[in-house]
Amino acid sequence: MSTLDFTPDEMMTIAASRALGNDDVCFVGIGAPSAACNVARLTHAPDITLIYESGTIGTAPEALPLSIGDGELCDTALTTVSVPEMFRYWLQGGRISIGFLGAAQLDRFANINTTVIGDYDAPKTRLPGGGGAPEIASSSQEVYITMKQSKRGFVDKIDFFTSFGHGEGGDHRQRIGIKTKGPTLLITDLAIWKPDPETKELTVVSLHPGVTKDDIQATVGWTVKFADKLEETPAPTADELKVLRDLKERTRIAHEGRKVERKGEVA
C-alpha cells in the first residue's frame, strides 16, 4: 500500500482517524478534527458518538459541515440539546471521552492559543478566540490535537493561554485542580506526538512515511525530542483514502449549494 500517492494533509486526517474507537464519545472541533472524526465513523468506528458544540449528539453527516451548526448535523443526530445543556450536562458532566481540538499556536507542553498573536490589549492579529475550547481542554477525559506543523504554529512560547494543556509540564494540571488527562496525542501532517509520561513534553513517536527528523525540526520553534524507538506511521490504505476523498467530494458538492442568481449576492 505504501506505493499509493497521498498528501501530507490526507496522512494527517487518516492518522488522526485511527486514534478514535467505536466506544468513544468525541467532542468535535471544526476543520481537521471534524474530517478525522467522520473518517473514523465511516471506516473502523461506525458506532462512535460525535458531538458538536451546537448541541447535536450522535451526529452522522453525509458531508462535512462548514460550521459547527450546519443543519445536517441536527438532521442526522440522535438528539439535539440546547447549548447550556451541552456545556453543563455533557461536557462539564464528564461524559466526553475525547475532546478533539485544532490550534493556531501550540507549545511543547500542548498549551493552545487561538485568541491573539501579540499582546491581548493591542494584538497584532486578533484571532477568533476560544469558543468551547477552554472547557473542552479541562473537562474532556482526554484531548487530541491535530494541526499542520509550521514555525508560526509550533512556537517556543504561545502569546495567550486560550486552553490549558500541560502548563509548564509535569503535574501542573493536577496542581491547579484539573482532574482529567489533558492532551495525550498530537497528530500533524508530518508525525504523531505524545507527551512524555513524566515531563509531559510533546515527543515525536512516529514519523509519517518519507518524513525525516530534520523535516520535523525545521517546522518547530523549539528543540524537538524524539522517542528512542521511533516508529513509521503506516501509510493510508486504499480504503482509507477512498473514504476520505469521497467525503471531501461530497463536501465540495454540498458547499457549492445553489446556483440561482439573486439580489444580495456577495460574490
Binding site: 451541552m86 462539564q92 495567550f160 490549558f164 484539573i178
Partner: peptide, 23 residues
C-alpha cells in the same frame, strides 16, 4: 451559556467548573 441561563433563572451569577488554567 451559563450566564444566559443564570439571567433566565433570575440569579445574579453563574457558577461553573471552567477557565482552569485559561488566560
Amino acid at each position: 451559556a451559563n450566564a444566559y441561563e443564570a439571567g433566565a433563572a433570575g440569579l445574579p451569577l453563574a457558577v461553573m467548573r471552567g477557565y482552569m488554567g485559561a488566560g
